[in-house]
Amino acid sequence: MNQGDTNAIEAALRLKEAAGDCEVVLVSMGPDDAINSLRKGLAMGADRATLVSDTGAAGSDIVGTTNVLAAVLTHETPDLILFGQQSADSDGAVLWAAVADRLRQPVISQATSLDLSEGKATVKRQTEYGYDVIEAPLPCVIAVSDGINEPRYPSLKGIMGAKKKPQAIVTLESLGVGAEQAGTAGSRTEVKSLNDPPARGDSQLIEGDGEAAARVLAFLNEKKLT
């Protein structure tokens, strides 16, 4: 499970602990053994999990993934959809925006705090210079920042109780997602190759010779970066 996802789960659990009567549902798309990642979220305290696992979904790019997740979420009709900041592998930080667009729901990203009341979400959105306060009517999509909370560790009782919680593994067909909407067929991009970024040839190494700070400052002034 991505670290960012645990921030989102923690945020959801805190909302549930404050509000009481609600349910935290984990949704993911992946191979069958991804259920073990979802188990961690169940062990933290989520109520149930739904995993879309289908060979037809393998190779989905963001468009295919969005089609699948939007279908599950349309089925679940949650009041609030929480995402982590970004995945740990591709670091895209766009899936939440694409899913919100597909669902035609408002989206707020980089949430460093989150309150729900009177049918709306109030979020502090972290910016470069401080934060914005943004409100959105529910239902909406919120991507939390990694600074919103410190995710709890699952307790041993939580870990052992997790396997008894409802865990559904569903197929594309059961969601009404056509074969042309997911997997490589439903994707609009194709990865041709992956390479390391080219080495930067124009870097300068400024050694600590007593005047290094002055030389760094002169360089920054020259580039108008001060």
């Binding site: 073990n36 188990r39 961690k40 870990i159």
Partner: peptide, 15 residues
Amino acid sequence: SPEHELIRSTVRDFA
């Protein structure tokens, strides 16, 4: 079991 693996990763992370 998956529970044993989750216990290991949880305790390792905590430690």
